[in-house]
């Protein structure tokens, strides 16, 4: 049975949070409990095929959900978990982040300029697949480059989640379309 509706401004008399925010600006879930749904171990397990090295995976999971603003951490967990569920519906379909473009760390410019573009160090331990991006850009190299820039720039909470999501979407979009009889 659905829970009773509570009008804005009237808090419920039970300890459970309401299904709708009670009013503009209100935060029904305290920040200390906001990430209660984040299961780092589960996320790590689900990323094992994308990041086979345990140390690399621990590092990336820390970047995704271990540090940074809580709403980004929570959102990363939700989106990656949902995409993982979608992938799991197609047995045998595995996302791959071992090929594609390197994902650079945002080092101070004078140090970034000295880093070798294809070296492991100075880059995150995964790559951005480009098949889906190529298709989306319609073969326009500048458009694709701009997409890559948008996806990989900024703090690692964003960039790494973007890369992993693109890797999963790349796999999903590259899979044969399911027909009516499939």
């Amino acid at each position: 049975m659905p829970p009773p509706h509570h009008r804005h401004g009237h808090p419920p008399h039970h300890p459970h949070p309401p299904h709708h925010p009670p009013g503009p600006g209100a935060r029904p879930i305290p920040a200390s409990r906001l990430l209660g749904f984040v299961d780092e171990a589960e996320l790590s397990r689900s990323l094992a095929s994308l990041l086979p090295d345990e140390g690399d995976r621990r590092f990336v999971v820390r970047c995704l959900v271990g540090e940074g603003p809580v709403h980004h951490r929570g959102a990363n967990y939700v989106l990656l978990s949902l995409l993982q569920r979608l992938l799991a519906r197609q047995p045998g379909l595995v996302a791959d982040a071992s090929h594609g473009l390197p994902v650079p760390m945002r080092l101070p410019p004078h140090l970034a300029a000295a880093a070798e573009p294809d070296a492991d160090e100075g880059h995150y331990p995964l790559r951005l697949p480009t098949r889906a991006l190529d298709a989306l850009a319609g073969g326009d190299a500048e458009r694709r480059a701009a997409m890559v820039d948008c996806l990989t720039d900024g703090p690692p909470q964003h960039a790494l989640a973007n890369v992993l999501m693109v890797a999963m979407l790349d796999a999903l979009l590259g899979a044969p379309a399911a027909g009516p009889g499939a």
Binding site: F59, L107, P108, A114, A115, D120, E121, G122, H123
Partner: peptide, 8 residues
């Protein structure tokens, strides 16, 4: 930070 990286 010139030493930054996933193996650092």
């Amino acid at each position: 930070q010139a030493w930054a990286g996933p193996r650092s």
